[in-house]
Simulated scan of single mutants.
Amino acid sequence: MNLTRRRFLCISAAALCAGASPAAPARWRGIALGAEAEITLHGPGAEAVLTEAIARVRGIERAFSLYDPTSELARLNASGRLAPSPAFRLLLRQADAVHRATGGAFDPSVQPLWQALARGGDVEAARALTGWERMTIRQDVTLAPGQALTFNGIAQGFATDVVTDLLASRGFGRALVNIGEHRALGGPWRLGLSDPAAGYLGTRTLADGAIATSSPAALRLGTGGHILDPRGLRAPLWSTASVEAESAAQADALSTACCLLDPDEIRRAMAVLPRIRRVTLVDGAGRLRTLTAG
């Protein structure tokens, strides 16, 4: 299994239930978060939990999709104001924490800049619209004029956490959940690390934690990669950044930001954010560098 930023959702879980007899797994295949999806669960009660897991994923789509005009995010971008659901408010708090820890390198208000580059628009005018701090979060969320948000750098990790937490609450003690990012219950699980330029670089072991990986060149946008510096300071410094943490949402957002940060800046972010375990960086020549917490 290559640890790339692919958008294929695959959940494989096994319930820890002493003495339980083997049973056929419960399976579902479909579309989730805009990608082909598959969920496979093993153990007692798998069919009921599978139904719950699908419902949770659909709920996340209804909140954070850029392409569903009825989603909370689409309605916020269209009107500039939203009374957020609890899940939307939680994701805002998580995004805000990583934004602050990274000095603004992670900034969901980058959406106008993304659109300008994708459509050949006025890039500098779009960059002037970015700025997480220009948004107001109180009872309602209010965007500054011209602003729009994207949660593509954190929503897949958030979905991974939601489904993993559901499985844990229903007694599934060993699981590997992949909704663009990985989170494990139990383990150990072996995951491969790949870089768009250098290819396969090796494997790592994951147990009771999450791994999220970002590679700017995994998707082209205009003449460059898809990870943009909202501050306008620099092009990506790393070909790939992979973050290990307890939370997949936090790992997802930080891996995005790490592509734009030097090692000292990454260490400062790791010191601020809780439960970050390790950051693995791949430079343009395919050389690995690892930063650990503590």
Rank of each mutant, 00 (worst) to 15 (best):
M1D: 04
R5Y: 01
R5S: 14
L9D: 02
C10S: 10
I11N: 01
A14M: 02
A15I: 08
A18F: 09
G19V: 06
G19R: 01
A23C: 10
I31W: 03
A32P: 01
G34E: 11
A35S: 15
E38Q: 13
L41D: 02
P44Q: 13
P44C: 11
G45W: 03
A53G: 13
R56W: 04
E61D: 15
R62A: 15
R62H: 09
A63F: 01
A63S: 14
S65Y: 01
D68S: 13
P69R: 14
S71F: 03
E72F: 03
A74T: 05
L76H: 01
A78K: 04
G80N: 07
R81P: 01
R81M: 08
S85M: 07
F88Y: 10
R89I: 03
R89F: 07
L92V: 13
L92T: 01
R93G: 08
A95K: 00
V98A: 05
G103F: 09
G104F: 08
A105G: 01
A105H: 00
D107I: 09
Q111V: 00
Q111F: 10
Q111K: 11
A118T: 04
A118L: 12
R119D: 12
R127W: 01
L129N: 01
T130H: 02
T130K: 02
G131M: 09
G131A: 11
R134M: 05
M135G: 08
T136A: 14
I137H: 00
R138M: 06
V141T: 04
L143M: 12
A144N: 05
L149N: 04
G153P: 04
G153A: 15
G153W: 04
I154D: 06
T160E: 11
D165I: 08
S169P: 01
G173N: 09
A175Q: 04
L176E: 05
V177D: 08
I179Q: 03
E181D: 15
H182M: 13
W189C: 11
L193R: 02
A197G: 09
G199C: 12
L201A: 12
L201E: 07
L206E: 02
D208R: 04
G209C: 11
G209T: 07
I211S: 05
T213N: 12
T213P: 01
S214E: 03
S215T: 07
A218F: 04
A218W: 05
R220V: 14
L221I: 02
L221G: 05
L221P: 00
T223D: 15
H226P: 06
H226Q: 08
R234A: 15
A235Q: 14
P236Q: 06
L237G: 08
S239L: 03
A241T: 05
S242F: 00
V243K: 02
A249L: 08
S255E: 06
A257M: 08
C258K: 05
L260W: 00
M270T: 06
A271K: 02
L273T: 03
R277D: 12
R278K: 14
R278L: 13
R287Q: 14
R289S: 15
T290M: 10
T292Q: 11
